[in-house]
Design a binder for these strands. Structure first.
Lengths: 121, 121
DNA sequence: CTTGAACCTGACATCGATGTTAGATCCTAC
DNA sequence: GTAGGATCTAACATCGATGTCAGGTTCAAG
């Protein structure tokens, strides 16, 4: 598929898809005319990239991480280097803290929301 | 307490604390000489502000939200306006999605980490 | 062909919280 | 009073993903 369809199916802008390629996160074949041609796999991959960005990883670390997982299910393919594993463990801890914070904030919002809806019936 | 101590106790930089004040998130008394003097409550408040920032809320929305909660436990004090409640419900949904994404990414990292540690014994 | 939509590259803009620096003032201890 | 650490204001810098725009090329359908 070409870039427009991939953008539509993933909800990620064409700009971002080109950026991902530039960062080495996403590879594309080229048509004779120079246009990008993506395999079906790319959809899952892009979604995974987005999730990792949302988890606060930077493109450089994602680039290291991606070779260690299959596109389809995110399971491991290559084996991570010890150095990378150290990084990933740290990221994992950071994500854990982030989740804790988010749950806290969500609870706070819930209290305010509930208080308001109760006060008004 | 003064700004240095508050910074130390919350882990938030002095720069950020001044920024919070400028954004209307944090109020401080002033000494005759013009230095900020914070009440004990400020510690909890700053931590809560940080959590909300981490949850992706912008300072403007946090500023609207804060009057609706007590410093200590985050429970509601003032009642949110209907407009604000609408916003908060949307934020809550966004946070939910964010949590889902984070859990996904954490699982992905776990798989890669575990695969690496198994491959090496 | 030709036309219009889709795509290309490259450059510049943006956003928001935070870092950093400079120069001045305050506060505390001696 | 004075030295030095803490604080003040104000301005500018940063970071990274993404938006946007311009000018040119490709592709598919008539």
């Amino acid at each position: 598929m070409r870039i427009g369809e991939l953008a539509r199916r993933t909800g990620v802008s064409e700009r971002s898809l080109r950026y991902y390629e530039q960062q080495g996160l996403l590879v594309a074949e080229r048509t004779p005319g120079g246009q990008r041609e993506y395999p079906e796999q790319a959809v899952d991959r892009v979604i995974r990239i987005q999730e990792l960005f949302a988890a606060g990883l930077h493109s450089k670390k994602i680039a290291q991480l991606l070779p260690c997982m299959r596109d389809a299910d995110g399971g491991p393919s290559a084996v991570a280097t010890p150095r990378l594993v150290t990084d990933l463990v740290a990221e994992r801890a950071r994500i854990d803290r982030m989740i804790t914070d988010l749950v806290n904030s969500r609870d706070v919002l819930d209290e305010v929301i509930n208080a308001a809806s109760q006060a008004r019936g």
